[in-house]
Amino acid sequence: MFGLKQDWQLDEKARHFVLEDYEGAAPRWCSGCGDNAVLSAVQRLARDLQLVPEKTVTVAGIGCSSRFPHYMKTYGFHGLHGRALPVASGVRARRPDLDIFVATGDGDCCAIGTAHWIHAIRYNMKMVVMLLDNNVYGLTKKQTSPTSRRSFTSNTHPQGSLLSPLNPLSVTLGITNASFVAQTVDWNPAHVYETLKAAHAHPGLAFVRILQRCPHFMDGHFQDIQDDPSKILLMTHDKGIPIDPSLKRLFKNQVVHDPSDLDAARRYADTQDAVPIGLFYRNEHAERYDLDTARGIDMTPQQRMKAVDAELDRFLV
């Protein structure tokens, strides 16, 4: 069943993948767009882990960052606005053999797709979910997003947005069965890479919020954080994201946070005076729905027919 060739692993071992094997169409993101940095980190990670391109699927919704699958030379699903997570869950359901990356934006995930975000976290099916959060709707040309700062002026709120931003981290950490929650920033490629690597290794749904610059509509939006390293709160721990020594020197504002401590994770997620980066929470033993959805994939046609025959017999006249 399942159509796997018995010897495929031997076959794959003979192959070696280089960066170009993961590079799809040339990205059409604006120059300076933070999405480029994330794409490049994912491609490097795929190469370093030697992910088999045809066994890798990137799934996205609609938005600037949701163009992500087109720029990977793997399989990809560029679907509907807000609906990346149900699709990715479906891809996973009967395919434990695939590597799945989801790219979603702040509008995609935190506005139109909110219901799916909550439930996908609860399902905890193995995949890496990257929330590329630039605090603005870019593709539709500068509207307020749920994560836009208060008083942000946009085409939908020219007098300034009226509400305080939604915090995707505290929301995610509040969802039952959340198992991996991290944050990083696009302008620190080493940290992005290490965060995604830890996310990929996680046995469950790894949710990574990536603060991402939008030079076109939000020029200088994160400039204050970029310019002043003390505005970053670097979370460190030997069970957390591995930190390069140079980063430790750059970011003086540090805290040792044990990612198994959910209460502390929720407190740090609510940090107001700095941007916390690192691993908030990880639980490798959380329930995984994909272990249930994959049951029966190896059943033979004879077993299936026998079962259906038995059911039909229950209705015999």
Partner: peptide, 13 residues
């Protein structure tokens, strides 16, 4: 919506 989204993910895979 999620019901058919999930289904289409299965279909794709």
């Amino acid at each position: 919506i999620a019901a058919i989204g999930f289904a289409l993910g299965c279909a794709y895979a």
